[in-house]
Design a protein around this nucleic acid. Structure first.
Lengths: 216, 216
DNA sequence: ATCCCTACCTACCGGTCGGTAGAATACCGC
DNA sequence: GCGGTATTCTACCGACCGGTAGGTAGGGAT
């Protein structure tokens, strides 16, 4: 998603570089992730895309319009990425671990889809124009349920536990995604993620459960 | 944290209502949570506090100054709240469940500290002035480690599992806190939280672990 | 009474914001 | 060449932004 910024008026009949619209979209995605919607100005976006401001209005209705286009792009890419993890061969447990690990690794990359999705996911409720905020929730939940569902069908997961497992893995997803959000630099490794998914299935093997009357 | 907004010049020798500074701080906390820092203007804040704009500059250096004061207030309140949960009597498991449940319940309340902390915690990295973003991370982690540490000392938790448990419960904390962030309206109940903490300790009791060659 | 301080105000400033009018340029078909 | 279309531009607009100059009311001390 790195785009060469060029202000030169280079018109080639068979240009290989992205057009203005693509450059604007990529710039918007990156700036909305880095600064949030309100603090990322239209001037920032067009400067990074290397075009004049009215060009943005040629391709998108307004600032809000480019946000919506950016979010649709992010949602479809995220869906595709999660689909790969959910479709991988292996047990439900391995696929859940794969999905969490993928999100962990992806959260480290520059201007990553995961981080953009997260920035929207958790943005203050009046910081963005009206938008179906739950779209990202639903993408993640759908893939988790698909994996867990197939685990139940194959006897790898008890049906009664499927809801709790889905929720616990959602927590792990949030942990993975939150590692490099904002200025945070987490230390979770892919092996940690696998161990955490195993913990969900196997438990911590805790010490004896305290009796009801334990007081010290 | 609801403050009567009043523009009247009411000077009472024994006034019982909060002063301008407190009203400004409360307004800032609420608006930063609802709109984010960039979209919450100084004019919004002073209007909600019922004072003129230069009064904000009388008490705080600038917009950034009131943000820092607000975040200090939020951090100290959050620390106090988590301390109550971590200090409660009971097993480590019960206290972890209590802490997660407290955060779940708190995330529902209006302009809650949890949501403010979260809005900062996950804000885009260039959306706020320089600030130690990790302060909230550290508050949460400190309390979790304290609970888990005492569980290890009392034999309720295996020492080798303590790191993984802390991490898994951090995921549950994020799940709890994320329930009502932005526009999300989650459906997790306090009982769900307790069940999820139990899952961390006991595991899901999954179906048989697939053998390495399992293919269907 | 006068002076000083605290707390708060109106009106203003320069700068930036999102958006737009009108124009310019490149390309294609006739 | 001309006209039409797609694409892109400079300069401008009104509104809003964070911050400030200068001022005032009230209370306490002298």
């Amino acid at each position: 998603m790195t785009v060469p910024a060029s202000r030169a008026r280079v018109r080639r009949p068979h240009a290989v570089e992205p057009g203005a619209r693509e450059r604007l979209l990529c710039a918007a995605v990156e700036l909305f992730e880095r600064k949030g919607y309100a603090a990322a100005s239209v001037r920032d976006i067009v400067e990074q895309a290397g075009v004049a401001k009215p060009a943005l209005y040629y391709y998108f209705r307004n600032k809000e319009g480019i946000l919506l286009a950016a979010l649709e792009l992010v949602a479809s890419e995220l869906d595709r990425t999660l689909d790969r993890a959910a479709s991988a061969p292996g047990s439900a447990r391995a696929r859940l671990a794969g999905l969490c690990t993928l999100l962990l690794v992806e959260s480290r990359s520059h201007a990553s889809l995961v981080r953009v999705a997260h920035a929207v996911f958790f943005s203050p409720r009046e910081s963005l124009p009206p938008f179906d905020f739950r779209v990202f929730d639903r993408i993640v939940a759908r893939h988790l349920r698909r994996i867990v569902g197939s685990g139940v069908a194959r006897g790898e997961i008890r049906a009664e536990a499927s809801r709790l497992i889905t929720q616990a893995v959602q927590g792990l997803v949030m942990l993975a995604v939150g590692q490099h959000v904002g200025r945070r630099r987490g230390r979770l490794s892919p092996k940690d993620m696998r161990d955490l998914v195993d913990l969900v299935f196997d438990g911590a093997g805790a010490g004896p459960r305290p009796s009801k009357g334990a007081s010290s």
